[in-house]
Design a protein around this nucleic acid. Sequence first.
DNA 1: TTTCATGTAACTTTATATGTTACATGATGG
DNA 2: CCATCATGTAACATATAAAGTTACATGAAA
Lengths: 152, 152
Amino acid sequence: MKRDSRLSGVLHVLLHMAQQPGPFTSETLAKAMDTNPVVIRRIMAGLREIGYVRSEKGHGGGWTIACDLSKVTLRDVYAALGNPPLLAMGNRTEAPGCLVEQAVNAALDQAFDDAEALLLARLGEVTLAMLGDDLRKRLGSRKIHDISAHRA
Amino acid sequence: MKRDSRLSGVLHVLLHMAQQPGPFTSETLAKAMDTNPVVIRRIMAGLREIGYVRSEKGHGGGWTIACDLSKVTLRDVYAALGNPPLLAMGNRTEAPGCLVEQAVNAALDQAFDDAEALLLARLGEVTLAMLGDDLRKRLGSRKIHDISAHRA
DNA sequence: TTTCATGTAACTTTATATGTTACATGATGG
DNA sequence: CCATCATGTAACATATAAAGTTACATGAAA
């Protein structure tokens, strides 16, 4: 399977949007992310449904942040994507008749479940606001890159 | 991406082998696992190289366990498979120029690394012998299924 | 009513695991 | 020595899922 980078992608979009007033068109965001506008709309769809962002059609339309960044965690964003699989590995058969396979599954599931739980917990500790703070620290004195520049 | 079930599969094979004297042909093992002999050879190749199992050609040949089951952990077996990716999610770009992406990566990497480390640690706590003990507990009074039966 | 922008379905591409076929290599038994 | 058995491996096929692309419908603004 290809590695899933939707969480990484959608966070990138949100963080860009948080740095300057919107709205942002899918095309603008796609250019900043070096991808396709439809991909942007796709990964943003879940966030729109939950209400983290809004989208408007027509002239002056585009995407706007519609939530309190200090209240939304990376885990929330992950959930908005539809809780895609976290682990690349899994059991051969989920409900096997073979006792050998059951023993193997039991051992692996313990490890898998623990790892998933920790990952979700860690994502739940970080808010979008914290991500933004970290970004501003990294930016330091540097001027922020205006992703809407080409609209001029 | 399809879910990787090689660890699950190879553990199933090893545990079957540990229940009765060998050697076992790839075909016998494949039948017990409902898969193809070549798949068995493929997932066993790494274990053979490290010396956890041996394989012999010709009449009476096949696979034999060649290690102390109480000394080999699930993590060792995982390593023998070549340390395939554990997480289904990853960063869009691994070494980005964009500071926004760097901030996102940093946050995600913390969570990802912690989860991977925990998973590996958990796998490292379980030996093949412990898996075998658990299996025998599950078997209880039941007679073990002889996967070599069809050879008669 | 033209232009812009999203919404979405359908299709293509890419990556990766898994399954299959074919054949070379080497060991055993006659 | 040769037929048989079994592994080793390359090459190819299939399955699944993410990412990219095209096409077009919908609706808002100028």
